[in-house]
Amino acid sequence: MLKVDKEIVSFSINPGGYAKGGTSLENKTGGWRSFRPVLNKEKCVNCMICWLNCPDDSIVVKDGQMLGFDYDYCKGCSLCSNVCPTKAISMVPEV
């Protein structure tokens, strides 16, 4: 029969790592960009399809108006330009 010679009183568990929510804001991804989205406000109808689809949450919207882009984080993927129904967003090379 198995003999237990010592009772386990307590043991510690490694707590693991944690990070505070929303802290990735510190990492500005705008430097990834080789093409920059540019808005033609005359064509824009504020349908917000670009806002919905931006993978980097970089479409600036205020009071139902599409105002432009957050170039600190925009990775220049051109998704907004592709989904825009009125072709109001054009991609220009970064210099």
Binding site: T29, P55, D56, K75, C77
Partner: peptide, 13 residues
Amino acid sequence: VKGHRMCAGCGVA
């Protein structure tokens, strides 16, 4: 939030 390292234009994001 933004600042994540997903590829530009990622469908999962």
